[in-house]
Design a protein around this nucleic acid. Structure first.
Lengths: 337, 337
DNA sequence: TAAAAATGTACAAGCGCTGTCAATACGAAA
DNA sequence: TTTCGTATTGACAGCGCTTGTACATTTTTA
């Protein structure tokens, strides 16, 4: 039978309330007494019972990660989870996952989820992070949340990285290799990532004095299949691009598949780069030049901050964390055919 | 303020105890009364408070997934998570994740985890599923657990699939394509997967009357890098194999990278197949022939069963779920050079 | 038809913790 | 030294549910 707070109190010769204060980091406990209580806690190997704590304090000690499609982005979500778990480490909080299919009634469905699991805080991933109605409903329910890479300004806490700048950087890299006809496979409408990455692409062209050619931007939806289709459309042209910047790695893989099927060698006949640095980008041959998206750091910061905001509801944070270009072998200097 | 059990009891005109019986699936409630109570529950939108339930019933309503390295196998773990979540759906249970680095003191460290989070059930993934000391400690602590693909017979519940047969099938496929010099990149020592897949490889050779050549089996550890090294060792030979069966997809990617660097075309100069059907196997070009490991189904069954075993501690289940070969373009008929 | 079994009620006692509020200790000002 | 205000500590009542006891009522079985 594990020790209870009562046992600790008896051992330290204080009231249970004082032990509770120490446990919850309240300030008004004299240092000496606090030390004595902490010693008792260690001596008895005491760990508070989360259920009892939750019941008495009307808290669940749960942070929920709300995401959309578990299958499509598994490595992305997994990285986020790792980040959230890291933030929970050493706290009484637990992370729970909640896949939540997008849909009109989402703002309504959230009520059921909240009623059942009563999470103390939520971390929202796009596209949910971009769902204004959902955020509003959460505000009404008075649930703390943070968003990841939201295109809205609505959330009190949002963590992301400068995707526009990162996209510009990687396109500049292609330009520095001598490429001029650079195509872009754009992401799914409605995601911030689509717009930021597309804008970054345009920024880099503008900066290099290359005229923007609308026909070199083809639509995608972040899936392999859409990358394949986009690649087909681009490579069948009389004057195909010499480099393609796909808005994520999966689509870059689609482009590469199309090139492969046409007998084009990467990178000699075509430079390709992606975005995100998912595991596939180092497993594929040649390795894919891409932008390392700092998911883990983002998720960790998002979770830490939202936990902090439970104590300090006035908290606001809109942070961008650093990213990195990941140079691999799928891009090379432009050679005249 | 959400409804309480008391409100439901009043609404249905019964005692709270009877509502509690319905909630917890006790048998001795007449069907008619049960229906009335269930109607009241719906009418009031009642959801039991997990903390109160947990405190009174000494349960946490948490199933923990214990795995080793979150980074290496992200897609595998993610699939498992999806399976566990599926099993929790519609139950009051929540899934929590717990990355737990392997190490000698694991059986001891588990105590801390259990004390802090008090999960009602655990699902163990290799290598933890193969840690006899750990399982023993869990038995001592009287915690229900199930294992996934354990090589031990120790667990009361273990779910997996017939890896040996699957490996034999895929090697038979290579043989049917005319290959005779088929190499194998073996997995990490200590994992059941290593032995099963290696044995399956040998089974297929034996069945086809091909003599087992020890020099065609090279060591790997399930990582890309080890596959790359193994590929190097195999392909530098005077008489290299015409097909390589890697014990997982990451190593197959390593082999493919090595082939790529040597200017060998897949599949025309070398057929390669993997195992697991991780996302990379369809993203890579050409697509990788592999075995679809039914992770999701396995994890779902493992979680469902272990939850069931909370009620019925005598429960035993050792199940193998069906798998499938996933044919893609990385394997083709042997052609004389 | 009577006895046995199955269902149901009322009530009370917690589960282990935290919130409220009152009590006490302490230090500085008078 | 006394006094007052603030910093610290404690007593106690729940949080919302499950469970046990003791007993009443209904249904089933013999």
């Amino acid at each position: 039978m594990p020790a209870r707070i009562e046992d600790v109190a008896a051992h330290a010769g204080v009231s249970t309330k004082t032990v509770s204060r120490v446990l919850n980091g309240h300030t008004s406990v004299r240092a000496k007494l606090r030390a004595r209580i902490e010693a008792s806690i260690r001596a008895l190997n005491y760990v508070p019972n989360p259920a009892a704590r939750g019941l008495a304090g009307n808290r669940s000690y749960l942070v929920a990660l709300l995401y959309d499609n578990p299958t499509a982005n598994s490595s992305y979500i997994m990285e986020l989870i790792v980040g959230v778990l890291q933030a929970c480490k050493g706290t009484p909080y637990n992370a729970v996952l909640h896949p939540f299919e997008a849909g009109d009634d989402l703002a309504a469905r959230i009520d059921g989820f909240v009623a059942t699991h009563r999470p103390d805080a939520l971390v929202l991933v796009p596209p949910h992070a971009n769902n204004a109605k959902l955020l509003q409903r959460l505000d009404e329910l008075d649930i703390r949340y943070s968003t990841i890479s939201s295109k809205l300004r609505q959330a009190h806490i949002d963590i992301g990285f400068d995707e526009r700048k990162a996209a510009a950087d990687i396109v500049e890299h292609l330009i520095s290799l001598g490429h001029r006809r650079i195509a872009h496979v754009a992401g799914l409408q409605g995601h911030g990532a689509r717009t930021w990455r597309l804008n970054g692409y345009r920024d880099a062209l503008r900066k290099a004095g290359i005229e923007y050619d609308e026909s070199l931007v083809v639509e995608g939806d972040f899936t392999f299949e859409s990358g394949l289709a986009a690649g087909g459309e681009l490579l069948k042209r009389r004057r195909p691009p010499t480099a393609i910047f796909a808005a994520n790695d999966d689509m870059a893989c689609g482009v590469i598949r199309e090139a492969y099927q046409r007998g084009l060698a990467i990178p000699n006949n075509l430079s390709v780069c992606g975005f995100d640095d998912t595991p596939v980008s180092q497993l594929i041959s040649p390795g894919l030049t891409t932008v390392r998206q700092p998911c883990r750091e983002i998720a960790c910061l998002a979770a830490e901050s939202v936990l902090q905001s439970i104590r300090d509801p006035a908290m606001r944070l809109h942070a961008r964390v650093p990213y990195q270009l990941q140079m691999r072998a799928s891009t090379t200097a432009f050679k005249k055919p």
